[in-house]
Design a protein around this nucleic acid. Structure first.
Lengths: 356, 356
DNA sequence: TTGTACGCGTTATCAC
DNA sequence: GTGATAACGCGTACAA
């Protein structure tokens, strides 16, 4: 096994100095054509590649982006990663992934692990527990250390950084309007507890849409589901809760804040004898695999996860590369009055079989 | 903004030498209690954390694992990542993710990017294009450089390394036996082209199960789907192909090598007026989200992606840490006659509504 | 045209 | 008990 070869070894072998080798390989014309050729040939033969770690140490940048998300087995998040990876790779960056598993502590541990030199900046979405605690000191601490952060989807005003979000409010308004347009009179909302910001915004959108159409919101038609515990293990509870909900209310339209709730609602409704979309029409937020293959397939508000990822990565890398050059110009700290950008990704309604 | 503080800065500030600081922080009792306390207090105050990159350079190990998979927006793969991340984190490793997007070239580029010092070892699953080309030189080259690889799921005999696979063959046999047991006489197989090894093995399992039961395999009942192109865009084609298939054959059982094929088959069958599971029973390989929420929900052969990830990570880290110590004992290359391990993860049939 | 010296941040070794 | 030095691998300003 031939271990990776280093500049020094090439230098010894060819009886020149390390810097000569370095220069020759970078094509510097300080070096004579002869030696350059000789060195390049040798390097190619032994498949020389500069050591990334040494470069990182020298340049004080790793060309690596840290992603920190609550969960990876989740269509939306994996789509975002795909988007990040796509542009990161195109722009010469690697991607390192940490999972908070919705835990405050794991989020902090992961951030500290990565912030100690392993990465140049973060792209992250806040864990539920952190949102509940409303403790954001670790984000601010990281930013204060000079490490840029881009937040997506689950963002928070208390942290000053670039953000990429979907127009949750607007998307919900559009969805509910669509249901009204299609003739629904009694539209139910199935949502999460308010501490998840996107849940709150989508709920707000529901209410605004009703107001716009002079329909009085009926609190009985709003089902708030507590998903603080692992949803997977509570599927039956979920169905039971929805079954109750459908039984005691008159409903001809459902807007659910995520795919799972929407699909489960359809399942329960069908079980109770309703026809979809004839008796009840359903729209869900999030466009995942379930929606596409459910029967009937589900009309959704598409979130464009990949686009979110791409935007986030571009934002982060732009800032990383801007700060390089800016740093040379002013070495003062004055240029800290940075204006942070908030990008809003438009949602789109994808009509399928669950609406008329 | 207070940038990260270094040993040197602490040393200057406290008017001691760098090495004193280093020792004090690592609790060496070479240093007097007084200075130790003083230094530790100062370090804590300024939140000193050693720079990972510098440590990596010095120790010649990064404590980082590279994952290279064909696709991340895929329930199975993201489950595997979750498993890897879980044990990696527990054992003090980070995880860096590369996506080949099923492309041979991107696989190579990604490997080269990561192999230059960024990681200590790979966990990967081979891209379809690579399997087609049967060109595995980049894997062997990496291994020869002394970087260990663990392959999972899509593995290949031509590369000598640790492997973690599911018992595709056995799992398929079990699935088809289950269908036979439940009374199916004409069992169809919906599979991929043979170049994907798991497709081939699952096909083989189908045939073996039939043989075990003295049923003659009928090649008309085998539908091989060419998914070389992006499946997403060919959903309609897929359905059309299956519709044809169902029309010209008598079928009362279906075994599909993946979730999508299984769910699509159910959809087509229902459309053609068949009742599931009364007229046709269906089992799919892979336990993903679709199966659980399809209606009727799908009986599957569960792959335990997370367990695969955990096993892979343990295998890799074991080898990484073994080679450390071994390297001190024999610095000779003789210990290269390593025996590689092949772990087989047992599958389990999860019965749901698509079988009687 | 080529080589020397230095620094990135750390730790281990050896000298004082 | 403390400090100086070397080394990990690289690039570059400067000296020869």
């Amino acid at each position: 096994m031939k271990r990776k070869i280093t500049l020094k070894e090439i230098a010894q072998e060819l009886d020149v100095s390390v810097s000569t080798v370095s220069k020759a390989l970078s094509g510097s014309k300080e070096i004579s054509e002869d030696t350059t050729k000789k060195i390049q040939a040798f390097a190619k033969l032994y498949n020389y590649k500069p050591n990334n770690i040494a470069l990182s140490l020298k340049n004080r940048k790793t060309k690596t982006i840290g992603i920190l998300i609550p969960e990876i087995v989740h269509h939306f998040f994996s789509t975002v990663i795909r988007g990040i990876e796509l542009v990161a790779n195109r722009r010469g960056y690697n991607v390192i992934v940490g999972l908070s598993n919705e835990s405050f502590t794991k989020e902090i541990i992961n951030m500290e692990m990565l912030a100690n030199g392993s990465i140049d900046g973060f792209i992250l979405s806040i864990s539920k527990e952190t949102l509940l605690k409303q403790d954001y000191h670790h984000f601010n601490a990281t930013i204060n250390q000079g490490m840029p952060i881009v937040m997506f989807d689950r963002v928070v005003n208390e942290v000053d950084c670039d953000k990429v979000i979907v127009d949750d409010l607007n998307g919900s308004v559009k969805a509910v309007n669509k249901l009204i347009e299609k003739g629904c009179k009694n539209i139910a909302l199935i949502t999460t507890m308010d501490y998840v910001s996107v849940g709150r915004l989508r709920t707000q959108g529901y209410i605004e849409a009703l107001e716009q159409n002079k329909i009085e919101a009926n609190s009985n038609l709003i089902l708030k589901i507590d998903d603080r515990l692992d949803v997977e293990n509570h599927l039956d509870d979920l169905e039971l809760e929805m079954e109750q909900f459908f039984k005691i209310n008159t409903i001809d339209g459902v807007f659910a804040v995520n795919e799972l709730y929407a699909v489960t609602a359809m399942k329960v409704a069908k079980k109770l004898g309703y026809k979809i979309p004839d008796d009840i029409q359903v729209i869900g937020f999030t466009d995942g695999v379930l929606s596409k293959h459910a029967s009937p397939s589900l009309t959704t508000v598409s979130q464009h996860g990949q686009k979110i990822g791409e935007q986030s990565a571009n934002l982060l890398i732009d800032r990383l590369e801007a700060s390089n050059t800016a740093y040379d110009k002013f070495s003062s700290d004055d240029e800290l009055e940075t204006d942070y950008i908030k990008v809003v990704i438009e949602t789109k309604i994808i009509e399928r079989e669950s609406t008329k």
